[in-house]
Structures are given as structure tokens and as C-alpha cells.
């Protein structure tokens, strides 16, 4: 219990630092802003109770908001993603459910499953975030393009992060 508390605290800190120190300063194109930080929500154990998931989402979003000089934008988008997570997990569950002591990731469930898990949630998060940020449908397609390109970028980084996890386990 204490062990996993420590483990996820470290993951939280690392992911937030990667987001605000690295990704926010990485300006590849004016369209692409990867928001990798939601990976923290996605890698939480299957058994995480719903209330804890939502509270952690609030904490995560609020932390990012502080660094991004926004207020409420990331918090609301992250909460929305957290709310969708149990539903998505149920939809894509393997026939005999999730085995205890496994974690959501490529290492335990394969790339196909991982994509079915991350693509809808990342899209939901980014679309919510970008439209809320624009605060109108005035430049509908411009905002859509920004959200889609950023999602692709975020997903690419999520896949990369999984390579890191697998390697870690074999050692």
C-alpha cells in the first residue's frame, strides 16, 4: 500500500515535471502542444476507486493549470477524462476481465489494447481542452486541427513511454 503510494507519487512528480519543464518549452509547430500529463491518470491501477480517480484528476489538472497560467481549463478537461476512464476500460476489457496484479499498459495487454484505451481518452481530453480554451466555435476547424495534431503528438509520446516501462521490467 505504502509502496504503491510512493510509486505513484514519484510518477506524478516526474510526469508533471516532464510536462512543464520539457514539453511546454518544446515548440515544434504552432499546432502541436503535447499534453502527456494525462498519462498519469491512464496508468493508475485498474482497482483505483472512482472517488480517488476523480480527486487525483482534480489535483493533476490543477497543478498543470498553475504552471500553464490558466485556471480551470486543464482541471475540467482532466476530470472529464477521469470520468470516462472506467467506461472505456469496461468497453475494451478482455473476455475474462482484467487479471489482478496487472497494470494498464503495453507490457500486460499489448499495443492494440493500449491504443484502444488511449486514443479515445486522449481525443476526449484534447477536444474538451482546446474548445474550452478557444471558448467558441468561431474558428471550428482551426481548433479541431489543433486538437487532432496535438493528440497525435501526445499519443506518440505515450507509446514511447511504454517502451521505457517494458525495458524497465525485463531488467
Amino acid at each position: 500500500m505504502i509502496n504503491s503510494f510512493l510509486r505513484y507519487t514519484v510518477i506524478f512528480v516526474v510526469i508533471v515535471l516532464v510536462q512543464v519543464v520539457l514539453l511546454d518549452n518544446l515548440q515544434i509547430s504552432r499546432y502541436a502542444v503535447p499534453f502527456l500529463y494525462i498519462l498519469f491518470l491512464l496508468v493508475l491501477p485498474f482497482e483505483t476507486p472512482g472517488w480517488l480517480l476523480l480527486l487525483l484528476a482534480f489535483l493533476l489538472g490543477f497543478t498543470i493549470d498553475l504552471f500553464e497560467h490558466t485556471l480551470g481549463l486543464h482541471t475540467s478537461a482532466t476530470l472529464f477524462t477521469a470520468w470516462l476512464r472506467p467506461g472505456v476500460l469496461r468497453l475494451i476489457a478482455p473476455r475474462d476481465g482484467y487479471t489482478p496484479n496487472t497494470r494498464p499498459g503495453i507490457a500486460d495487454y499489448g499495443t492494440g489494447w493500449f491504443l484502444r484505451y488511449t486514443v479515445p481518452l486522449t481525443l476526449a481530453h484534447h477536444l474538451f481542452l482546446f474548445y474550452f480554451e478557444a471558448f467558441s466555435f468561431h474558428h471550428f476547424f482551426n481548433t479541431l486541427a489543433r486538437a487532432l495534431v496535438s493528440s497525435a503528438f501526445t499519443l506518440g509520446l505515450m507509446l514511447l513511454s511504454q517502451l521505457f516501462v517494458i525495458k524497465n521490467r525485463r531488467e
Binding site: 476523480l54 480527486l55 484528476a57 482534480f58 489538472g61 490558466t70 485556471l71 480551470g72 481549463l73 482541471t75 475540467s76 476530470l79 472529464f80 470520468w83 474550452f132 480554451e133 471558448f135
Partner: peptide, 13 residues
């Protein structure tokens, strides 16, 4: 929680 967050976001916007 979402009501809290969205109202913050709307005020910010």
C-alpha cells in the same frame, strides 16, 4: 468537481 473547474475556467475565459 467539474462544476467547480468549469466555473473557474469560464471566469478565466
Amino acid at each position: 468537481l467539474e462544476t467547480v473547474a468549469v466555473s473557474m475556467g469560464v471566469r478565466y475565459n
